[in-house]
């Protein structure tokens, strides 16, 4: 028994090590470079750990007044599109999962299209639509674009999850006189916490990191996002590596915080009890 426990422990430790190594190796370099003076960034052989670490890169990024505005825009756009995406997707997924109506599979398929069409086919029409409804260069415009881009995944995944929930629980609720919205909010959503957490993470990171649609559909600093701000560190000639890496680290921190927040949903997922209630 003890031997088995030891083997189990070793396996777990090995797993942890492998995952961390694979995920973090490039990140390690991002971090290391972000603390380097410009003259040692390309030293050969590479300085894996900076000998004279500096905060200069971080200072440059933080002291750039535009960065604050980029950050604000990104937060507004990402959080709003995350919340709205989840609400819209959960509603739609429930509709697709529990109702039979004409054109159901057609609609469901149509939601995939924003993912199938390549960017080349999307940007010009998106631009013209946003212009016509006067949402070009606005937060709202970017928010709805990110929602539609994310919908294929958010809806399909939520539906996949809902489909697996046994309908018996709902039937008893219906007999108790609950309406469909109540059932969705009181029963389905709590059970589906892991799925909702996952699609929220997806919706968030989509808006947080997206660059090319943002480049085209925003015009100035009033709506530009951090990913645009970072791409200013890509110069005509080469890359301002120290700043880019520092900016990237700073940009990842809020994303990690959001992940930690949604992760609670994943840990406290479905338990036997919640189904039987």
């Amino acid at each position: 028994m003890r031997k088995r426990k030891l083997r189990y422990k070793i396996l777990i430790t090995l797993g942890i090590l492998l995952i961390c190594l694979y995920s973090l190796l490039p990140i390690f370099w991002v971090l290391s470079t972000s603390f380097k003076q410009p003259d040692v960034i390309f030293s050969d052989p590479p300085q894996w750990i900076p000998k004279n670490p500096t905060f200069d890169n971080y200072k440059t990024v933080i002291q750039n007044p535009a960065m604050i505005q980029y950050f604000k825009n990104t937060v507004i756009i990402s959080l709003s599109s995350t919340v709205l995406s989840v609400v819209i997707a959960v509603l739609a997924a429930y509709g697709f999962s529990r109702y039979k109506f004409r054109g159901r599979s057609v609609f469901l398929g149509m939601f995939l299209f924003s993912r199938i069409l390549p960017r080349v086919s999307l940007i010009l029409p998106f631009f013209i639509i946003l212009r016509n409804i006067r949402l070009l260069n606005t937060h709202l415009g970017m928010i709805i674009v990110y929602i539609i881009i994310g919908l294929p995944i958010t809806i399909w995944l939520a539906k996949g999850f809902f489909d697996k929930i046994p309908i018996e629980i709902e039937e008893s609720a219906i007999l108790d006189g609950c309406g469909p919205l109540t059932i969705l909010l009181r029963i389905i959503v709590p059970i589906s916490a892991p799925a909702i957490g996952a699609i929220a993470m997806y919706a968030f990171i989509l808006a947080w990191n997206e660059l090319l649609l943002a480049l085209i559909l925003t015009l100035d600093i009033s709506t530009q996002t951090i990913s645009i701000g970072l791409s200013y560190y890509k110069l005509e000639f080469g890359i301002s590596w120290g700043n880019l890496m520092a900016g990237s680290v700073l940009m990842s921190i809020p994303a990690v915080i959001v992940f930690i927040f949604f992760q609670k949903n994943l840990v406290d997922g479905l338990t036997a009890g919640s189904v039987k209630e």
């Binding site: 970072l230 990842s252 994303a255």
Partner: peptide, 14 residues
């Protein structure tokens, strides 16, 4: 779990 998700948070330009 968070560490495994970190690659996702890095913007593609980086």
């Amino acid at each position: 779990q968070i560490i495994a998700l970190i690659p996702w948070t890095i913007p593609s330009v980086v």
